[in-house]
């Protein structure tokens, strides 16, 4: 169950439209390492986690990613306000505009639509947590790439916030992975799928102690 709070996690107030940079930033809405993929990845993977540290971490980081999706949507929306047809053509926004006007639609900077293949939910917690740590780094790299192109401080500021959160999430997933591995035989971490091959033998020692 979710409930909505009528505020952004971090403030966004962009006064100067810039559809060229909006087309780059939309990749973090629906691109390969964007916030839509991130939230769906974590919120889907949590069902097959064998302990509650992993379940909780994926639930809460997945929820925060939904708040980040809203921040990125807001940035793109504010960057594409009050455009004239001339500005749309001058700034190369016409390809997006013709299909979506200035609505928000999940695609990559290259125009590739969002696809569930942007993430995995493998049903193996070690496999999934390694993917999650890599995903946080890929998103951080994308935000770094965006920051090299953005000159407007009103745009760079929330992007820097989002970048910093990727690093915190990487740390938390690393801790969740350690918690999981502490429940396993240290001589044989990768020999089997702890969720599928140990069914009925749930490792919850921290929360059940």
């Amino acid at each position: 169950m979710w409930s909505y709070e009528k505020r952004l996690q971090y403030p966004v107030k962009i006064t100067q439209p810039n559809p060229k940079i909006a087309q780059v930033i939309i990749s973090q809405y629906g691109g390969p390492d964007g916030e839509m993929g991130a939230s769906m990845r974590y919120l889907s993977q949590r069902f097959s986690m064998p302990n509650r540290i992993c379940m909780g971490t994926l639930t809460d980081i997945g929820t925060e990613e939904l708040a980040h999706l809203e921040i990125v949507g807001t940035i793109v929306h504010q960057l594409t306000r009050n455009l004239t047809p001339e500005e749309i053509l001058q700034q190369g926004f016409q390809n997006y505009y013709v299909d979506h006007t200035t609505g928000i639609w999940p695609q990559s900077a290259g125009g590739v639509p969002f696809n569930a293949c942007e993430f995995q939910s493998k049903g193996d917690p070690i496999t999934d947590l390694f993917e999650d740590m890599a995903a946080e780094q890929k998103a951080r790299t994308t935000y770094d790439n965006i920051l090299r192109l953005v000159k407007d401080p009103e745009v760079a500021d929330p992007i820097r916030f989002l970048r910093a959160r990727e690093i915190v999430h990487f740390q938390r997933f690393g801790e969740a992975l350690r918690a999981l591995q502490e429940d396993l035989n240290s001589k044989n971490f990768y020999a089997f799928n702890p969720s599928f091959d140990c069914q009925g033998n749930q490792a919850n020692h921290r929360c059940n102690a």
Partner: peptide, 17 residues
């Protein structure tokens, strides 16, 4: 509210692990 909400959420993630 954003400042308090952020502190709260960051503590939540920390407490998860």
């Amino acid at each position: 509210i954003q400042t308090l909400g952020f502190t709260l959420y960051d503590l939540l993630l920390f407490l998860d692990t």
